[in-house]
């Protein structure tokens, strides 16, 4: 029996919608489940105290500081390099062998799994450079991971700046550098910021690479001392069965942070798009 095209159309579209709905439901379920089980335990005490008994009791304050230190430093390192790379690719050079090589490098970095970054960071930053399991080793490793995202989003933001802006700037007698810093970067700033904020979110989510480079000490972090990030703390709590309530609470903090970061990025981007069109 052959179904008529009109019926096939209905069936298929309904099926595709069903799969899409399942996807959205999974997302809603994950976020809802974690927040429902975790938020009740997220008290001021939990956020402001140090963990006790391996995290079975107490809070996550040093871990929040550690997360901010590692990811903040990583983005601080990656952002200037990424933006400069994007400026170079879009404003300073024609499409050629050099740009192809730079793009290839960024594309490949984007595809490398975090465990490989972790192995590299361990062999290079921790051992070869003698930085040890530390905030700095973790941040340098994460910076490499964040670089491709920042390059790509900055490039897109810079390309979205209308060509006429550049012509006007040149027409007023500015040099290329003046044109780039005063006109292009200024107009592309919201787009670039979105990329940087998004990469911050990715860094916070990272576990495998951080585990091998920043370690898992529970004390307050220092630049050359080991620390633990929220994602790794959550992993340890749940995997070693230390405390499910504490695990849920840590996951809730993590999810709220990611949601806040993504919404901020989205909001900045929306404003950018409205401004540009």
């Amino acid at each position: 029996m052959r179904l008529s095209p009109a019926i096939t159309q209905r069936l298929v579209v309904a099926f595709l919608w069903l799969l899409t709905a399942i996807t959205i439901a999974i997302l809603a379920f994950i976020i809802g489940h974690v927040l429902a089980h975790g938020l009740p335990y997220v008290t001021w005490d939990f956020l402001s105290r140090s963990p006790e008994k391996m995290g079975r009791e107490g809070g996550v304050f040093p871990i929040i500081v550690g997360t901010l230190a590692v990811t903040g430093l990583a983005v601080l390192i990656a952002a200037p390099v990424g933006v400069v790379t994007a400026v170079y690719l879009t404003e300073y050079t024609r499409k050629g062998r050099l740009t192809a090589v730079i793009r290839f490098g960024a594309d490949c970095l984007a595809g490398i799994p975090s465990i490989i970054f972790g192995l590299f960071g361990f062999a290079f930053f921790v051992i070869a450079l003698g930085l040890g399991l530390s905030v700095l080793s973790g941040a340098l490793t994460l910076a490499l991971m964040a670089l491709p995202t920042i390059i790509r989003t900055s490039e897109e933001a810079i390309r979205a700046v209308p060509w006429s802006f550049r012509e006007v700037s040149y027409g007023l007698g500015s040099t290329r550098w003046q044109m780039v810093t005063h006109v292009v970067l200024r107009s592309a700033l919201p787009g670039i910021t979105t990329g940087i904020v998004l990469s911050l979110g990715r860094c916070i989510s990272e576990t495998a690479a951080v585990m091998l480079t920043a370690g898992s000490a529970l004390r307050m972090p220092s630049l050359l001392g080991s620390c633990r990030t929220l994602a790794l703390h959550f992993y340890t709590l749940s995997r070693e069965g230390i405390s499910m309530n504490m695990a849920y609470a840590t996951a809730a903090v993590l999810i709220v942070a990611i949601l806040a970061i993504d919404l901020t990025a989205y909001w900045i981007m929306r404003r950018f798009i409205t401004k540009m069109s």
């Binding site: 959205i24 994950i30 979110g201 989510s205 959550f234 996951a251």
Partner: peptide, 16 residues
């Protein structure tokens, strides 16, 4: 919403 799925940490997926 689908992009947000990409932002959820892998450990949370594992935990779920």
């Amino acid at each position: 919403a689908i992009e947000l799925l990409a932002g959820i940490p892998s450990v949370v997926y594992g935990f779920m």
